[in-house]
Design a protein around this nucleic acid. Structure first.
Lengths: 335, 335
DNA sequence: ATGAAAGCGCTAACAA
DNA sequence: TTGTTAGCGCTTTCAT
């Protein structure tokens, strides 16, 4: 292994000078820096980060902790990883982990990251977040609101999203709604379901109890749930079914097609997330965009502010979602 | 910061003993280890990995380098990350990076990882792989065959996959084929296209030059490419279009539905990858599974063998893909 | 602008 | 089974 000393000898300077050459903004003559760089390249030297970390107490590693990482996940994992990378300084690496895999916080988490971005979907992560808060690792939680000291928070206003899509459907003449929910232990489910009920009630739209189905955030769940709604007696059967995620909506549309029920002619269906497969089906899915990019960007920005300034107060940033109008909601206004 | 010395004092032992307590398989009385663990927990001690790394020259970080990481990627990124995590010892973290973001190999890669798993789709990664090979970082490349010294290789037999699906279609009476390819700088494209041509020729199946379309591995590309095939004169128009990826096939099916061309009744379409959205559409897509899980598993296993044994020879493991029969290929045999 | 020396927290060799 | 000691490669004072 070639060390700072090898380079120093060869360059005829002290190891301190070599160290300075590799430290941005340090006081060193530009010409010596260049000379050292050249020799370092020849020798194949690059700084030993463990040694550097030992004295600076930095690791140049950011952790992205997802509630869980599983096969056949929706596309949002890659979306977020990509967005986080875009916001990350080049000298940091990004570790991607699942909170469900953390069995020993002190060993797996505590001393390994300069900062942690928690991408949390579920209250099951609360214990992890509490440990984070206790341990003083700079952290920010995105995707859902949390209640913790010492940790910043960026999330999207799901209720506004639901409101926008329901009001859009109402403008298109829909009066009877259905709703397919995600897992009830996901915060997104709770928020979206509550917003659904409130929006319908605020706008005198009907939302029958039997037209509200609990499920999971995946294709199969939507596939199964839509049956229960379609089979409702005509009096209760909605003209528009709002789904808590695109995957649910995609599954629901698939099932309608199998049953020869035309979407949106016979029943309108909406999603939530705006994933790329939304446009892979006919009809293209009308949905709410989930502002992953914004959450990732603000999340990383806040994280570095925390890391740099050792903030002790909490900050919250809420991002407004947008409606993406495509073809899965019919205009049923009378002409 | 609480160090090994604080724990040692409190426990009335030497720092070495504390160190041993935290080193698996070290010679230490179990009772003292437990006593030290208890005190460490009280004090909130956990080992400083920079210090440890400085002496052991280990980082407990594995890098997963993808050709690139971008928003709206297919689901395979999360699939692979999940599979790699499953194969990874708990004390390792997984850093997820894009090769396209590596601007300075020595600083961003060389000293940061104990081992690197390259998930390579494109020959554009060759330079990176060459640097890896030169730098002696233990590495294995999965997803495509490479030619490099010092690096192991795990990939799937794409040609066999294409052969299986074409022969399946032939058994169902298809004689005229079309093919929609991915980016031509992706190795998967080259391999699959070559296999397509060879299989058709070997089995006396027709594959007109004009029915071979180059595109990209995404929905939109399939959407556009299928038009060119559909609009072929009847003499050249295939009954079955093999696509180089599921995303391409999904886009193609979407376009057929828009043009009121029934799949598979009027035209059969097949995919490659077996992603979860394959069953979200009607007809469910007949495809080839891409054995990500197997590649990840063997890849990690080989990587750790390299790390542990400082192997200098190359090893290659090829995994056989399977055909997944669903509904997008019609049986057109005469009765 | 550069150098000398101390020391970050840990493990490894050796001794007991 | 445990302790003593040296030193991993670097940055950080403090001098010069």
């Amino acid at each position: 292994m070639v060390t700072i000393i090898d380079v120093a000898k060869r360059a005829g300077v002290s190891n301190t000078t070599v160290s300075r050459a590799f430290t941005p903004n340090s006081i060193i003559k530009e010409s010596t820096r260049q000379r050292i760089f050249k020799i370092a390249a020849e020798l194949g030297y690059s700084p030993n980060l463990s040694a550097r970390g030992l004295v600076t107490n930095k690791k140049f590693v950011i952790g992205a902790f997802f509630s869980r990482i599983h096969t056949h996940m929706s596309t949002y994992l890659s979306t977020i990883i990509s967005d986080v990378h875009d916001a990350l300084p080049e000298n940091y690496i990004l570790s991607v982990e699942g909170i469900d895999r953390v069995t020993n916080f002190d060993f797996q988490v505590k001393n390994r990251f300069d900062g942690i971005l928690v991408v949390s979907q579920s209250t099951a992560d609360d214990q992890f977040i509490a440990e984070l808060s206790k341990s003083n690792v700079p952290a920010v939680v995105i995707l859902r609101p949390i209640d913790a000291t010492n940790i910043d928070n960026v999330y999207s206003d799901d209720a506004a999203g639901i409101r926008k899509i329901v009001e859009y459907a109402a403008r298109n003449g829909h009066r009877k709604f259905g709703y397919i929910n995600g897992q009830t232990n996901y915060v997104a489910s709770t928020k979206r379901a509550a917003a659904m009920i409130k929006t319908c009630s605020d706008n005198q739209l009907s939302l029958d109890k039997d037209a509200i189905i609990d499920g999971s955030f995946n294709l199969k769940s939507g596939y199964n749930a839509i049956d229960k709604i379609i089979d409702l007696p005509a009096s209760k059967r909605p003209t528009c079914v709002v789904c808590a995620s695109d995957d649910i909506a995609l599954g629901a549309i698939r099932r309608c097609q199998e049953r020869k029920i035309e979407v949106p002619k016979e029943i309108s269906i909406t999603g939530f997330d705006n994933i790329s497969y939304d446009t892979a089906i006919t009809p293209a899915l009308t949905t709410i965009n989930n502002p992953f990019e914004g959450m990732a960007k603000y999340g990383v920005q806040m994280l570095f502010e925390r890391m740099d300034n050792h903030l002790s107060h909490n900050r919250v940033k809420i991002i407004e979602p947008k409606i993406i109008i495509r073809d899965s909601v019919a205009d049923i206004n009378e002409v």
